[in-house]
Amino acid sequence: MKDYILKFWQGLITIIIGMRVTFRHLFVPAVTIQYPSVKPELPERERNRLYVNMDDCIGCDQCARACPVDCIDIETVKSVPGDDLGVTSNGKKKALWVTKFDIDIAKCCYCQLCVFPCPTDCIYMTDVYEFSEFERENLVYDFVTLTEEEKVEKKKNFEEFTIKKEAEKAAAAKKKAEEEAAKKKESGDQPGEKPPDNKE
């Protein structure tokens, strides 16, 4: 009988204790963050979407080589002597036209390994993390600042330049050969003379 009354009493008391706890929680400020309207504060070294500042990019391809999942795809074209590419913000001279700089962010594993090798600090992680898309193709980010025509133009320029150079080279070689031939002729008359060093 004593046990029975005790049980009843304990049940009552524990309910009251429990109710006190829940009542206190009624006034505890909610931990909810109203996400789309209120953004949570991100940690200091968060790694999110990559961004490339093409003004600073020298097209060195180091980021693409560092990438463990090969999500960066870079193509460059050499500049021709007359082109003015400007300098990067830390004073490096640009020598390459970047005709393709694609980052497939769908493949990206956010390891940040591409960020460290960059000599001009032009590839970095931004704090943007809301970039979902309906089509996977939209996740391939194209950072190139050149237009299609410019790309074609630069390629053509370089090709023309190479052709010109080849021609110049060929002409130079021809000239040299002719000169050599002439020299040989001359040296035929004067045997024993050392032939000119033409290792070049």
Binding site: T22, H25, L26, F27, V28, P29, A30, V31, T32, Q34
Partner: peptide, 13 residues
Amino acid sequence: KVSGHMQDRLGPM
């Protein structure tokens, strides 16, 4: 609302 606030949530907002 009561459920939400007792669990330190906000309930429908």
